[in-house]
Design a protein around this nucleic acid. Structure first.
Lengths: 352, 352
DNA sequence: TTGTACGCGTTATCAC
DNA sequence: GTGATAACGCGTACAA
């Protein structure tokens, strides 16, 4: 099979009797080229099947119009939506998106960092792996003035752009909601505490208890390792077998919350009346489980879009590393059936 | 903020009193360089913070060690897992992954195709948009010898690598399963028929009915536009209000199947006894809904891995466009509660 | 408004 | 085992 030769600006130049520079300028809508010439050249380019070579342009400009994304795992609803938001925004601006997943391993995060750096990405969007504590591998991006945006799982000891939700307030509100529903002994499914999103959610939980005169019981705070369905199932079983079981659960993610609901049902514990549950993220499963799971909305796609925006807005300018701008997005408590102990005036509660 | 200058092989050359070519060769483990020199140079590179420039290497070699991915939407469980599989395989081989989503629009697919082409990707993995009929925009990849792999939603009028599941057999088996459970009037939620995955599933459904002596009723075959939850809800309501409603549903995706279950419950129709339901994909919601949804497994991550493999295996070699190798993966019927009319000897049915 | 000439960082080819 | 050189395709300073 014969492989067709690439059409370059030189071919166009020869064909149209222009110099390569004129071609280049025309294709980039340079102001010094007349509209007419631009049109002529672009049409010829189209016709001859010319396609720009991003590699060459990137080498020349020392940047590739590519946003790098470094996350833990793609196949999680939150992450997929995050990427989707990034991609959409980037694409509209003519940028490409390079993705890599760390699988929550520190080592992978480092090597992926390098791979992305080697591709001379224009900017980087990161959601830290569970393991990551040291941030040294990100320094080279800062040093080279490559805008770096941390999303959701952000570091607290590293100066850079950050896009987060107000985890503290969300945790507080979720807990408060359970209290308002009449819960007296609320358990908390907590994530790894060195990832500050989980720490903040727990702080909100603790403060909500305190401010409402409820005692804090260490037994009711469960520190999860993975927050998986299996882990949630095991933990819930244990909790419900206590002599004095909790009457509410605030889980830091939906997966564990859903497992709690299903476990409770299996054990004959009524949700929400004997056990009210609220999760976090608003994953699709939250509206499918029955009773449907109350949860905290997590604007994943929006966070992705904002992160991409941060990078695009830097395009060309120098990157001021002293500026550590933090964007904090609000969340909303989504009340469904799993926490509705009191029957309100509401006739029907939309489950979706 | 000062931006650090890039360290290049020239800097290394000057520092170590070698020529740039030797540095380049050493970094690429060229056989003609002694182990000792290689070690020396690599250590110095590490120490001086050298990082290769993929753009330059890509320009020189006319390929970028990057796999391009073109799909409809990232935030669908199947697609996210597919990408995850591609990324994992690519990463291990030192390749990057560039993603783009068409949002099921033909126009977007074309422009994304161009964007990926412009980045001189090594290979392309595609799952077609719902709208796509004409395949012209993929021709340039073939012409240039860039291996192109179609996954799941593949064309039938275009010669190239394809990775699919056996949709016909899956559709047949799913329907057969419902028949074995005693269903006599089985409805089918069908996807857009010009996407052959849906056409095949329907064919399997039809043949299963025929071969088991059940009549085919056009009223029971519903052609969906989006296969969304809302659409499924509406359709199910209508079906169940028929004078002679179906006693089974085979849905071409899980989302619509789950909506059918939830709709039936709302209307007081017992699932599975009055209405057995089986879906397709094994999305997370399938094991959460109650009764849990029987479905067809869809090895998304594996399909991604295989697609990436196809491309990697071509690395360097010429691409034989006459070879249209099709990889067909098997599927499995996952029996859960939504289709279990007959109580089998099984004591407990794992819901997950 | 357009052309000339050079360099971005790398690697393959040829020479020694 | 190593060095010199050209070339990949493009963008831009400088010149005209």
């Amino acid at each position: 099979m014969k492989i067709k030769k690439e059409v370059t600006i030189y071919d166009l130049a020869k064909e149209l009797n222009y110099s390569p520079s004129t071609i280049s300028r025309a294709l980039n809508n340079h102001k010094s080229i007349s509209k007419k010439t631009i049109k002529l050249i672009k049409e010829a380019a189209e016709e001859m099947g010319y396609r720009p070579n991003n590699l060459a342009a990137g080498l020349r400009n020392n940047k590739s119009n590519t946003i790098g994304v470094l996350i833990s795992r793609i196949n999680r609803p939150f992450m997929a939506s995050l990427i989707s938001g990034i991609e959409e925004t980037a694409r509209k601006a003519g940028y490409n998106v390079l993705i890599s997943q760390s699988n929550d391993k520190y080592e992978n995060e480092i090597s992926n960092c390098n791979a992305l750096y080697d591709s001379r990405i224009t900017g980087l969007v990161v959601s830290l792996s569970m393991e990551t504590i040291d941030m040294g591998h990100f320094q080279k991006f800062i040093d080279k003035g490559i805008p770096t945006v941390f999303v959701d799982r952000v570091p607290d000891n590293f100066n850079s752009y950050k896009v987060v939700i107000d985890n503290y307030t969300a945790g507080y509100s979720a807990t408060k909601h359970l209290i308002e529903q009449g819960c007296k002994r609320i358990a908390h499914f907590a994530g790894a505490q060195h990832r500050n999103i989980y720490e903040e959610r727990k702080k909100g939980y603790l403060d909500a208890l305190r401010e409402n005169g409820l005692p804090i019981e260490e037994d009711l705070i469960i520190y999860f390792k993975t927050m998986s369905f299996e882990e949630g199932d095991k933990v819930t079983k244990k909790l419900l077998k206590m002599k004095n079981p909790p009457d509410g659960i605030f889980s830091a993610n939906d997966t564990a919350a859903v497992s709690a609901i299903m476990c409770a049902k299996k054990m004959g514990v009524n949700v929400p009346h004997e056990l009210a549950v609220i999760g976090f993220n608003d994953d699709p499963i939250a509206s499918i489980v029955q009773p449907s799971l109350s949860t905290v909305s997590h604007p994943a796609a929006k966070m992705g879009a904002i992160s991409a925006r941060r990078i695009l807005d830097h395009s060309g300018q120098n990157y001021d590393t002293d500026l550590s701008e933090i964007t904090v997005l609000g969340t909303e408590i989504i009340v469904r059936d799993s926490s509705l102990k009191k029957v309100h005036a509401l006739e029907s509660k939309p489950s979706r």
